[in-house]
Amino acid sequence: MDFDLSDQQKEIKSVAHDLLTERSTFAKVRACAEERRYDEQLWRELVELGWTGIAVGEEHGGGGLGMVELAVLLEELGYACAAVPFLGSAVSAAALAAETIDAGGELLATLVSGERRAAVGLPSMAADGAGAGLAIVIDGGRALLMREPQVEEVATVDPTRSYARVSGGAQSALGAAARGRVLIALAAELVGVCQRALDMTLAYVKERRQFDVPVGSFQAVSHRCAEMFRFTESARSATYYAAWAADAAEEAIAEASALAAAAAIEAGREVTAGAIQMHGGIGFTWEADVHWLYKRAQLDCALLGPLKGHQVALGELAAQRLAAAR
């Protein structure tokens, strides 16, 4: 057993991290958010680098890797809070690649090349809605593919990304593979959002002084940071496991993705809220950047669906497994 990223996966992660640190600064994210537009230049660059097709087979123009690699990229994009329509397209591509519906690969090819954009999430609110020619949404227990859906953009509290209601179009049901991948992708983005919120908070509380000492030396502060770390690592354990299961243990995907979703929802909300609190008044301003993370987390968590729903599923699956073992 080896529960660690491989050297290649670590390399992908660190290259993505370095690229986004340079190309997707908060100044850029802010500029995009305030004008409610994507960073089209960065988006083209990511497509050219092959990121959109990372989990798609080479026969369809993809990189031939899997969900773990996609999760690692999404983690870094979440860390940067990048304003690109990556999530919808890349996750749709990964989901379709794992299903049989697009065996000819026509949809895949256009998603990988960036020609077609896709939205993912719920029918009432899907991420990367603007200009989407395809949507994959979770509708209760199943996933649904919509070709050429009607897209009605909704301005949300997270202006770093376009969101929309999607409906109509030509609809077909997808399986557990697609549903699981959507959940895992959102969870992976949240792991990155949490890591950034934690890193920013740690840097701040080491610097900021009150009562003549760094505020990070107060246990009320340092223990909250320890909690934020615990939540972040919990979500990471669950998400990496689920991404691995998507690639290598398909039969576990329903349970593993519910686990990742639940852990990420809890972490996303707790950690980004903690980040605002630990920054004090400055954290509540439009000027400081923590709020972008809080808002992205709120949307991602809402798209994942209610925490309790995933927990109920986990409880029932565990009971079934026990009953079967008896």
């Binding site: 639940a262 927990q311 109920v312 599923a313 986990l314 029932e316 565990a318």
Partner: peptide, 8 residues
């Protein structure tokens, strides 16, 4: 839900 949370 509560058992599921503990399972999580």
């Amino acid at each position: 839900a509560r058992l599921g949370e503990l399972q999580m």
